[in-house]
Amino acid sequence: MSESASAEQSRFVLQTVGFDARFPNTNQTRNCFQNYTDYFRCITAKGEDFAPCKQFKKAYHSLCPNEWIAKWDEQRENGTFPASLEP
């Protein structure tokens, strides 16, 4: 059962963001925030379809609580996001 099930599971891959030497400590708050801002800087510079930007998006989705992402998205829309998103 499990073999056939795993075969049809191919749309899910057990993979996540790796270790980041900039954030070696238990505190990962900055890791999440950095990837979030990097993503929006990246798409401002290169456009939303630029494939390497996707890595930042994957990373911040894996690291940031959904509530935080929602709050920051809202702040970006209102122009109150507390960091520059210019590349």
Binding site: L14, T16, G18, K58, S62, L63, C64, P65, N66, E67
Partner: peptide, 23 residues
């Protein structure tokens, strides 16, 4: 943190836990 396979976010609330599998 040795090359993780999976990241799970755990959020503590008053008074329950919530889990996010955002990979």
């Amino acid at each position: 943190v040795i090359s993780p396979t999976l990241t799970i976010k755990v959020v503590g609330h008053q008074w329950y836990w919530s889990y996010e599998y955002s990979d």
